[in-house]
Each structure stands twice: as structure tokens, then as C-alpha cells.
Design a protein around this nucleic acid. Structure first.
Lengths: 110, 110
DNA sequence: GAGGAATATTCCTGTCAAGGAATATTAAAA
DNA sequence: TTTTAATATTCCTTGACAGGAATATTCCTC
């Protein structure tokens, strides 16, 4: 079972950060561009980017005055492989509630 | 672009809830079983299950005195398809930072 | 080197969510 | 029908986190 990083999930669970990620999907952007396109204020953008950066979702490249942010693929790969290994097991178990109910009864009346 | 539900992500971003989900992977469980296996207190378990239930990650079946919780596959499918559509676009853009830098320069010096 | 962009950081405040403890609810069992 | 088991709900408190505003930092340009 691949380990899911809670920090990845919690970083993505904030709407503005999810928007940033959706935006960066199209390619790298500077803080200013993100700020403008999402209608945020610059400090908040920087803060959200820091959270995304700390959790490894995003990486920075300094270019003179500017910081260019872009997505890192690893966290998404990890998340994906978790979900898929997940679905594999779920598929087997799915629609087997009746089996479980029978087990439960057996526990009660041995 | 498939829409990711923030509520799915935020529900999964709490460690105890993620543990519950990992546990339910093996099959449906009652509140008591979850409580015991994770060493939680029963009220907290119920609260976490409510959050998971509200976000559609989990569903309940009442069986006499007990409530049997199990995973619903839909949120995971949605999450998976989002990530994969995501990775498709990222793949194209990946390693194209140089292109972007050139664009930036063009913007500055037209 | 002074002024001005672009970005990060700090401090403050309010909100919200999680845990603890107690209690309510429902169904089973005696 | 009283008691007991399984679960949900409420109230309270505390801590984390997001936004606002101000300020610090870094680098460019003149």
C-alpha cells in the first residue's frame, strides 16, 4: 500500500490552493501572474505558495526579481498510485456487504 | 477537466479519517470495530464518520443496533480521473521551463 | 546609491475544526 | 419494562489556519 501524505491532501484541500494548482497545470507562473489571475492579494498568494512548496506540490525557480512556480509531478503520481491500489482492493470487496453481514451473525451466534 | 471536490480532499486530510478509510479498504466495519482497531473514543469515531459520510466517501447501513460503514467508490474514481487528466497536461508541459522563460523575456522586451 | 518592482514575512484577529466529557437515542435482552 | 449495548449528539475548550495590513527583503533601473 503506497503511503499517502496527509500534507499533500491538506495542502490541496484549501480552495485557493486548489485554484493555484489548477492554474499551474497550464504551465509555470510567477507570483504576480497567479495573484492577478485569481484575484488574490499578493501576500496571501505567497503564503499559499509556501504551503504548496512545503508539501512538495510546487517548486520555485528564482529568476531575477521574480519567482517562477511550477508543479512537481511526484505528489500527484503518489496520490494516483495510492488511489489505484485502493480501487483494486475496493473492487474485490464491493457489493459484498451481504457476506459481511453473514460474518457478523456468525460472530454473534457461534 | 473533472472537478475535484474540496470536501473530499479536506475529509481525507485528517489523519484519523485517513486511517478509517485505510481500514475500510479491507471491507465494511461497524463503529465499534473501527473504534477498537484505531484506539479512538467512540464519539470521535462517530464524528469522523459523519464527516466522511457527508462528503460521500462512506455510506452507512443500519443493522439492528449497529451501523455498518463502507466505502463508496465514486469519490475515489472522481479523484483518480482528476489526477490523471491532470498528469496528462503536466506531462506535456513538464521540462518546458525554458520555453516559459523565453516567453517571459519576450514580454519584457518586445 | 536612490527609488521602485516583485516577493516574502510578521503580527494581529477571527473562525473553524478536533478532542474531551457528558448525555441523548435506539434497539436488544433479560 | 427495566437494563444494557451501540451509536449519535451536544457543549465546551483549545489550537490551527486563513485573511488583512503593514513591513522587510531583494533585485532592477535610472
Amino acid at each position: 500500500m503506497p503511503d499517502v501524505n496527509v500534507s499533500t491532501l491538506s495542502a490541496l484541500s484549501e480552495p485557493n490552493r486548489l485554484n493555484i494548482v489548477e492554474l499551474l497545470r497550464r504551465g509555470p507562473l510567477t507570483v504576480g501572474e497567479i495573484t492577478e489571475q485569481l484575484g488574490l492579494k499578493q501576500p496571501q498568494t505567497s503564503k499559499h505558495l509556501k504551503v504548496l512548496s512545503d508539501s512538495g506540490i510546487v517548486e520555485v525557480k528564482a529568476e531575477a526579481n521574480r519567482r517562477i512556480y511550477r508543479l512537481r509531478p511526484e505528489p500527484f503520481q503518489a496520490l494516483d498510485s495510492w488511489i489505484r491500489s485502493f480501487q483494486r482492493v475496493m473492487q474485490e470487496r464491493f457489493d459484498n456487504l451481504d457476506d459481511y453481514l453473514k460474518e457478523l451473525q456468525d460472530k454473534e451466534k457461534p
